[in-house]
Design a protein around this nucleic acid. Structure first.
Lengths: 331, 331
DNA sequence: TTGTACGCGTTATCAA
DNA sequence: TTGATAACGCGTACAA
């Protein structure tokens, strides 16, 4: 039915091993031999079996992506970036969505490593900072690249942006417009980035001599609903904020929704700022002022670190971008 | 390093084959033997190698998902539904995003079948209706389930909603409110669902004696930008529409954005309707009146059809839901 | 109900 | 620069 390496070898008049050499771009293959084999492979439409390669060799030509983010856009962009890089090397990406609250988390990821024998693994928050998982992976000696890790950066290779600096830049933008009562909606507490962004907010306020007002800081979960909920509370205060900075765009959208419902003029009555890959920011009205995180590029670079024959645990920092769309000073 | 079936067998004091029997839930295993083996497997944290199973057996315990949709939400929900079903059977989902305009499309999908030896394949539009791909799959005798296929429904198993009926229901809702000048933004022309939805719109208008006005029908591509573009044109007509029905929610969001920019009162001056999984519809303001397509469930059922030991090419129709949020009659 | 021997398609080892 | 042959870890057929 499906052709095997054996068939190709017979057809090309060479040994099995020679075909294997050509397939794996090994050295020591005669120039014309290589050409002939490549032609035969193409003509027969031969595709090596991933299973057999994984079993016999030390590579499976597969990498894993353990990802669980409340935002579909994040997942989509991350997968796209990784896939783009994988395609260059003919490697398959195994996207393993996990549930961060599940007791099967460790098992799911172990399956990817033991079952699929992936050549490497990309982790996105919050599992980037789950000690049991990291220990399990270290124990199995798997190559790991973490995206936006919160702890022990020396443990694995990683890619990230400076979340605190980004949040600081946004806060400065708002204080620069004259805002002093700036609400903040925190990210999901499991994510290390949540704390980093909050810290940027805190520092930004401190720079203009404003202390944190607990009434203006609400817990969130990186989703639309928690943003809306936070806005409900903050906008009914005796002294409501003149601007709200949400830790991601989904929550910012939730804030906008509530603000509209209450008949507020945006950004006249309230400036709203977000943080994300900007995919969503243009959908809402008015378009969000936001910190753009290059999610797709984070994925691409993560895959690059995994596929490159590097040695150490490289760290790559990418830059963010402050996109100002609709924000004004307080009335 | 990693434990094999051999280690488990030795540890449990049985043969390799017996362990294999337990792992595959075969009959003819002594009750206590089974218990002992299961305990050993758990104790050793043993996980069978997907590669070896795929190579030796006739199953790989992997299914493929070929998916390329302009909407991240669609992809996310589809993947989630399929994964939920796969988890029940301990099967891995290999998500293969493809580029519908790429000449590598056929190759990418062939890789999934020949390379990964998937037990089955789920196709989402538009590749559901690409004859060369379907022919290649038929040639390889792979189990295929198509989501929302547009042609030859008897060719494979399939899951779908009645797109035409859904679009008709929405159009009736709008005409019922008194609208007669209803704009329509078509979906991407590669998708069969685009034509089906347009047909529902056409019939709905015909029912109230209104013929298609070409000025009120614009081409779209299922993304935000094309919705915005269509709105730009329609809203500058001498006689602009009093309502616009977009073939999906992303385009409806684009319409809203333009309407806001032009200072239109929604839904007073313009009612906007969409079509989608409703994930996005609540983000925008005002929340969209939309046809809710159960994307996640479509994926779940597709995986179910693939994993069930059925024989024929079953067809399962799911129901849609009309969600009315902000739409009123014309001014 | 259990065990033995073989083969799946590829890479690794070592010899030619 | 090439080729023969032994693994890789599991399922299958058949024997016990």
């Amino acid at each position: 039915m499906k052709a095997t390496i054996k068939d190709v070898a017979r057809e090309a008049g060479v040994s099995i091993k020679t075909v294997s050499r050509v397939l794996n771009h090994e050295r020591y293959v005669g120039k014309d031999t290589r050409a002939r084999v490549e032609a035969t492979v193409a003509a027969m439409g031969f595709r090596p079996s991933t299973a057999a390669r994984a079993l016999a060799g030390r590579r499976s030509f597969q990498i894993g992506l353990a990802c669980d983010n409340p935002s579909p856009y994040y997942v989509y962009e991350m997968q796209s970036g990784i896939r783009d890089r994988c395609q260059q090397d003919g490697v398959r990406m195994l996207a393993q969505p996990y549930d961060r609250d599940s007791d099967r988390l460790l098992k799911d990821i172990a399956d990817l490593v033991d079952g699929a024998r992936v050549d490497g693994l990309i982790l996105t928050p919050p599992v980037t900072d789950f000690a049991p998982v990291l220990a399990m992976l270290a124990d199995r000696n798997v190559r790991v690249v973490r995206v936006s890790p919160g702890t022990s950066p020396e443990l694995t290779a990683s890619v990230f942006i400076d979340n605190q600096a980004a949040a600081l830049a946004m806060t400065r933008h708002l204080t620069g417009l004259g805002h002093r009562r700036i609400g903040f909606v925190q990210g999901h507490p499991s994510f290390a980035t949540s704390a980093q962004r909050f810290e940027g907010y805190r520092v930004g306020l401190a720079e203009v001599g404003v202390a944190i007002d607990r009434a203006l800081v609400r817990k969130g979960a990186f989703d639309f609903a928690s943003g809306a909920e936070a806005a409900e509370v903050m906008l009914t205060l005796d002294q409501p904020p003149t601007a709200i900075f949400a830790s991601n765009d989904d929550m910012a959208a939730g804030i906008l929704s509530i603000a509209h419902r209450r008949g507020l003029n945006i950004p006249g009555d309230l400036s709203v700022a977000g943080f994300g890959d900007d995919a969503l920011a243009g959908y809402v009205w008015p378009p969000l002022t936001t910190v753009r995180q290059p999610t797709r590029m984070l994925g691409f670079v993560a895959a690059d670190l995994l596929l490159m024959p590097t040695t150490g645990n490289e760290r790559r920092e990418l830059s963010f971008e402050l996109i100002v769309r609709a924000s004004t000073g307080p009335a």
